[in-house]
Design a protein around this nucleic acid. Structure first.
Length: 259
DNA sequence: ATGGCTGCTTTGAGCAGA
């Protein structure tokens, strides 16, 4: 079962590209972030015309996430947002059970700049995600948390670590929040397979960021031990960052064996 | 130090992203 995660930076602005990518990669399960569409304006046909089961959780302009699964896989026990988030306007989390995995798709807040109100919101969001696991998950069962974490875990994950040390996405506070999440009992699936530096998933649109390979690894798959046992490989579709109208993120695809 | 690209929005300058 191939599970893909991609921050598309607006699905409607990326429809052709996403359709071509679905046809080429044929992932069994797709988690998107930053769909940027309300549920009534979501272009469901890009998934449904290809036989995907689809669950969306959107809002106008910002954020928005979805999960899609292609037969024979189907989505069960769908959860939208945190259990306590009835008043939370930011649609950043959707979870479902698929192929024997509990899959949580997250779009962690960016944080704007260290010390800002948005930065504090980001740190609290990480704490809420950890609490969600504490309250509802079990490290002895197969859970996968994937998405845009907006944190580069260590120096291998930033093209110029010394230039960005302490900045947003690479501050000690954010790394610590990410590590507290992992301490629930999660492994970084990419690091399970590789310790190489320079495996990036995001490149700034500005200043020729991609052309100069000034990248960051901020999109991740985290997994409990039973899910890691089922993981067979993980890769970044780096070529999706090329060509006309790319998202600033590339898709990441992890392969898991069936239960 | 600043802004550098991109997408969105009851259309157009400002916000947010990362």
């Amino acid at each position: 079962m191939d599970v893909a995660s991609w921050n598309v930076n607006s699905l409607r602005a990326r429809l052709e590209r996403v359709g071509a990518w679905l046809d080429r990669e044929a992932p069994d399960v797709v988690c998107l972030q930053e769909t940027k569409a309300t549920d009534d304006k979501f272009p469901r046909e890009v998934f449904e015309d290809r036989g995907y089961d689809l669950e969306v959780f959107g809002q106008p302009t910002y954020n928005g996430v979805c999960i899609a699964a292609k037969a024979p896989y189907a989505l069960e026990d769908v959860q939208r947002g945190f259990p306590d988030a009835s008043s939370d306007a930011e649609k950043r989390l959707i979870a479902a059970t698929v192929g024997g995995l509990r899959l949580v798709n997250v779009y962690v807040p960016n944080g704007s700049s260290v010390g800002s109100d948005k930065f504090e919101y980001k740190l609290r969001w990480y704490a809420r995600l950890r609490k969600l696991l504490d309250d509802t998950a079990d490290p002895d069962t197969p859970w996968v948390i994937c998405g845009d974490f907006n944190v580069a875990p260590d120096d291998r994950d930033v093209h110029a670590p010394d230039a960005y040390r302490g900045a947003v996405m690479f501050s000690d506070e954010e790394k610590a929040a990410y590590q507290r999440l992992k301490a629930f009992g999660l492994a970084d699936v990419l690091r399970h397979f590789s310790d190489e530096a320079g495996v990036y998933t995001w490149w700034d649109y500005r200043r020729l960021g991609f052309q100069k390979n000034r990248g960051w690894r901020i999109d991740h798959f985290l997994a409990t031990p039973p899910a890691v046992e089922r993981a067979r490989s993980i890769r970044v579709n780096r070529d999706e960052r090329k060509g006309p109208q790319p998202s600033d993120h590339a898709p990441v695809i992890a392969t898991f064996t069936d239960a």
